[in-house]
Amino acid sequence: MALTRQATEHGHTVADDDVSKRLLESAATLSFDPMTEIDWDAPLPEEHYGLNPEWSTLYGTRLWDGMTEQQRVTLTRHEVCSIMNTGIWFEMILQQMVLRDQYLKNPANAEFQFALTEIADECRHSIMFARACQKMGVPAYRPNKVIAQAGRAFKALAKGELAYGGILVAEEVLDVMQRDWMRGENVLEIVRGTSRIHVVEESRHMKFARQEIRERMRHAGPARRRTSATGIAIGAYVIVSSMVHPGVYKAAGLDVARALAEVKENEHRKAMMRNSSRHLMAFLAEAGLLTSRSAAVYRRVHML
């Protein structure tokens, strides 16, 4: 009876609250201030990449083989900053969705308190990414107008598992990439450092998103599962297809049309994307959010 009284409209339970309490404890003991953890004044070695070459969209192509080393360094720095700017864009969407989800909920609940903790983390992450790109001298790459408007609609309308599913997609894919970047000996220290901070703190955010999705889907019927699965997949398509701006190829002195054509056919890139999405796909399947229709969308961006 007590459990029923403590349940919210989306099925929140005492066990769910325990997850949020553990995440709050983790945040209290293992959080970072990027302004002091990162040496923002350290010089950037000219030969160091922005990300591991294997994560470049052109790695493994004939175009990559014909590029100078300086072009490769420039390309990877612009690629990582494009991904960081996509991260800033989506973190701003994320913050608004989480705030809306927690509006007028009980501030004494651990779920409420961790949600605000996550928003505070995301604010620091966005500033951290912005400063890193500024340090690298890379311009702010933004999504095109259509994608930007789609983002406005998503943050205004998405709720429940759709909102947290979108959050999880963005965090899971970037997490796999950054775990490699932070270990890359030939990667800029500013990228390795920001990646370490993001990986540690985002691990909590991903646990929170998974738990929120489990709650919302606990009593969901087949129709809701199908609709939500498709909505999350469309969100994933938008996020993944927007990560690397076409302008990065121009910045490296490449023919943009040729670069985009080679990226489209790059089997190495496709394999890397499937690998980075493996755990995400397993979770969505477990939650009943991987349907034949959503799988078709994921395949279009090589997440399956």
Score class of each variant (00 low, 15 high):
154 F>P: 00
22 R>P: 02
15 A>S: 08
36 T>P: 02
78 H>M: 03
1 M>E: 07
106 N>K: 01
48 H>T: 08
84 M>T: 00
152 R>V: 06
130 A>G: 09
108 A>M: 02
223 A>I: 13
262 E>D: 15
230 T>Y: 15
146 V>E: 07
189 E>K: 14
104 L>P: 00
56 S>E: 04
252 A>F: 05
36 T>D: 06
48 H>S: 09
240 V>R: 02
157 L>W: 05
233 A>Q: 10
37 E>M: 06
186 N>Q: 14
78 H>F: 05
8 T>W: 06
24 L>Y: 02
218 R>D: 14
197 I>A: 15
131 R>L: 03
150 A>V: 05
135 K>G: 01
15 A>P: 04
20 S>R: 02
214 R>V: 08
271 A>L: 13
5 R>C: 02
122 E>M: 03
25 E>I: 01
18 D>F: 02
260 L>D: 11
69 E>N: 15
231 G>D: 05
215 E>G: 10
193 G>D: 15
277 S>W: 09
217 M>R: 11
72 R>F: 14
172 E>Q: 06
27 A>N: 02
128 M>A: 06
106 N>F: 00
241 S>M: 06
125 H>K: 04
46 E>V: 08
206 M>G: 04
36 T>K: 05
199 V>K: 14
280 L>E: 11
177 M>W: 14
13 T>K: 10
275 N>Y: 10
232 I>D: 10
112 F>P: 00
72 R>L: 10
150 A>Y: 07
102 Q>F: 03
218 R>N: 13
56 S>K: 04
274 R>P: 07
124 R>A: 04
188 L>S: 12
65 D>C: 09
80 V>D: 03
37 E>G: 00
116 L>T: 04
8 T>S: 12
47 E>M: 05
